[in-house]
Nucleic acid binder design. Structure first.
Length: 672
RNA sequence: GCCGCCUUAGCUCAGUUGGUAGAGCGACGCUCUCGUAAAGCGUAGGUCGUCGGUUCGAAUCCGACAGGUGGCUCCA
């Protein structure tokens, strides 16, 4: 840990002026002020500024700068510095909110002109000056009226003050979840006491102030390493109906070394970006002529796609699913029956008019599977009845959200629907969750969590309270029993029922929904699905939607980033490259390659005019897992030089042995 | 959809204050026959995303559209 204060021995303004210390009690600075890694104290579970007097007998712990709370405090203080800098450069800028988020902070401003890269550099310069000034953060408790008077020129702050009573959540420091969202109002004000934080210069004049719950670091000198990273527009309070504000994003760290390490991590992540690797490895592309969000898979990407499809088809059959097939378009009535059309008309491709009917490209497969279920009478003996297919669906995603393979307009779901009795539903859901977790394990993914999407208090859903309660309880029990971390997502359910989804993050930390399991009691009712029970009565089944990969396209994108293109051998588009030391050894390697190909291995022999070094380099750049190199010595010995992707090698390996090792590695589905 | 930025050869990029384009890699050809991450030489390839405007003249300035991109909103 590098000392965050550039000159700790110099007089610390916070130490000789404690306006809060009216009672003569000890403050956090008295206790911990010598240790610049301490940025706050926890007093009876609340996080306090170091300058606040600590009541006698209270339990007090230091909050270290590199703890999650400490980092959030550092970043929140950095947000104040950014805001002060922006308002000093643009006095007309009105303040929005400025919370800490993962790795950094943002601050929103109502500003006539958007920030430019140049103006952001200006902001950064002023911030550096403010940090150098070591402005002290002073906390002041104020009444609503006082706050409103002081912030009379800040309309957004006034709105927060007016809304204070609505905010019940008692959040001391809000740590963002990485996607930049977060309940804004809980960050700046909470229930009860309002506080204003002043930034004081050396002469105690107020350089800047903001309505804020705090806490903050003692002075701006505690913010040694930061940068402004980007700007963007953001709707006030996250509502599209509100005005767009200009948001400045920044990052802040306890030391320059940590800032550098963070920047290095970002650069590494950019190297893994599936859009970049997809082009470099010749896996897929997005031809302009097709339109936005419509990928084509090249032969090498096609191999990965086919391996995934083969895997998941085989597994579905093993798990008792029937493979079905449905068309890409349907008359619109089907989507009225299912209830989708009113909800998703705007995000479906517009209808085609034909012979007096409107046809839609399907955006989901479930209605068609329902028609198969309804195709004849069903008995309770058939249940669970499970349908599975690769369903290509088309969704007119808005232009601003299309993103590589992770958000496309045409995608293939490995979509399945299980029709079960209500009693069978819990068991089926556990079964599907096991299926999904096994699949993720087989593909080597380990960084994910479950999201439990429920109705919350939104009213955009159909079905009775009781049905929702039952469905939610069933999913919740399965999710909590899985051993995987579960994150609640109130309000995130499908309109027809709650869901469990697997969420994973891409190279730059954005999270994406992968597998889903949804409990649906609505569509069976809307389609009039029924089965004959043992007692001869007609009963309505529950349907459970599940997609194991989710979208094949998105899963490929995540796989590319997870492996940085170096796929496990069984998924590698080319598993083995033969590299002859010179042209005359090509026939020998072709013979070895033929034997590998017979064993089901994807193998190529590089018979180009390049030198062997170049061929090794090319295979290495293509991230081929195995290279077999052969020259005169090898031919004489009936052997090959075996080179792995990590650069290690074994010379003089008998051909038999090399073939066995490769086929074993491919069959084992392991990473090498 | 909203705000900002970007678009020059297959790829990665240069192109000074407006005066109709360059490099490296790749491709192709020739020479070299080579032992663990780039042999040498040569050739081809671009109406500078599209359309319109300003100008004697536009890759360069302005506008619209398309595609991409960073966020916001959305995500069955």
């Amino acid at each position: 840990m590098v000392d965050p204060s550039p000159s700790p021995s110099v007089d610390d303004p916070a130490k000789d002026d404690r306006t809060d210390a009216t009672t003569g009690e000890q403050t956090g600075l008295d206790r911990f002020g010598d240790d610049k890694r301490v940025v706050a104290v926890r007093v009876d579970g609340e996080t306090w500024d170091l300058s606040r007097p600590i009541p006698d007998g209270a339990a007090v712990e230091p909050v270290l700068i590199d703890s999650p709370d400490g980092l959030a405090i550092l970043r929140h203080s950095a947000a104040h510095v950014a805001a002060q800098a922006v308002q000093s450069l643009h006095p007309e800028a009105k303040l929005g909110i400025g919370p800490p988020i993962t790795d950094g902070f943002y601050y929103d401003f109502d500003l006539a002109d958007p920030f430019t890269p140049e103006s952001l550099r200006e902001v950064e310069k002023v911030m550096q000056r403010i940090v150098k000034e070591r402005q002290r953060f002073r906390r002041r408790e104020v009444t609503d009226t006082e706050a409103a008077a002081e912030l009379a020129d800040e309309p957004y702050k006034l709105e927060l003050i007016a809304d204070k009573s609505r905010v019940a959540e008692d959040v001391v420091v809000h740590v963002g979840d990485g996607d930049g969202s977060g309940d804004a109002s809980s960050v700046e004000v909470g229930a009860g006491q309002l506080t204003i934080y002043d930034n004081l210069k050396r002469d105690d004049s107020v350089a800047w102030f903001d309505l804020c719950r705090g806490p903050h670091v003692p002075h701006t000198g505690y913010i040694p390493a930061f940068s402004i990273t980007r700007s963007s527009a953001a709707y006030w309070r996250g509502d599209q109906a509100n005005k767009q504000l200009q948001r400045v994003y920044g990052t802040a760290w306890p030391s320059r070394d940590e800032l550098k390490a963070y920047e290095f991590r970002l650069a590494e992540a950019a190297r893994r970006d599936h859009r970049k690797l997809g082009a470099e490895l010749d896996l897929f592309s997005f031809p302009d002529e097709l339109g936005s969000g419509l990928p084509v898979f090249h032969p090498k990407g096609g191999v990965i796609k086919r391996e995934m499809e083969d895997y998941v088809r085989r597994r579905h059959i093993e798990e008792g699913f029937d493979y079905v097939g449905t068309p890409h378009i349907s008359k619109e009535g089907l989507f009225h029956t299912s209830g989708h059309l009113p909800y998703y008309k705007d995000t479906m491709f517009p209808p085609m008019e034909l012979e007096g009917s409107s046809y839609y490209l399907k955006a989901m497969n479930c209605p068609m599977h329902n028609l198969i279920f309804r195709g004849r009478g069903r008995s309770y003996r058939e249940l669970p009845l499970r349908f599975f297919e690769f369903g290509s669906v088309y969704r007119y995603e808005r232009s601003g959200v299309v993103h590589g393979l992770t958000r496309v307009r045409g995608l293939t779901q490995d979509d399945s629907h299980s029709y079960v009795t209500p009693e069978q539903a819990p068991g089926e859901i556990r079964h599907l969750l096991d299926f999904v977790l096994g699949l993720l394990r087989d593909f080597g993914l380990d960084d994910y969590y479950l999201e439990l999407s429920t109705r919350g208090d939104s009213d955009k859903f159909i079905g009775s309270d009781e049905e929702w309660a039952v469905a939610t309880a069933v999913l919740e029990e399965a999710a909590l029993g899985s051993g995987v971390p579960v994150v609640p997502d109130p309000g995130g359910a499908a309109f027809y029922g709650p869901k469990i989804s697997i969420q994973t993050r891409d190279a730059i930390g954005r999270s994406w929904q992968m597998s889903t399991i949804q409990y649906d009691f609505n569509q069976p009712a809307r389609f009039g699905l029924e089965y004959q029970a043992a007692d001869g009565t007609r009963q309505q089944p529950v349907m459970i939607h599940s997609a194991k990969f989710g979208s094949i396209e998105r899963f490929i994108g995540v796989l590319v980033e997870h492996y940085a293109g170096a796929f496990p051998p069984w998924l590698s588009p080319v598993q083995v490259v033969g590299v002859p030391v010179a042209g005359e050894y090509v026939p020998y390697l072709v013979e070895v390659a033929d034997r590998l190909r017979t064993a089901g291995i994807r193998v190529e022999v590089d018979d180009s005019d390049d030198r062997m070094q170049k061929k090794i380099r090319n295979a290495q750049k293509e991230k081929v897992p195995f290279m077999l190199i052969a020259g005169g010595d090898d031919v004489a010995a009936g052997a090959v030089s075996f080179r792995y992707r990590d650069g290690t090698q074994k010379n003089g390996v008998p051909v038999e042995e090399a073939i066995r090792e490769i086929t074993d590695a491919v069959a084992a589905r392991v990473q090498v």
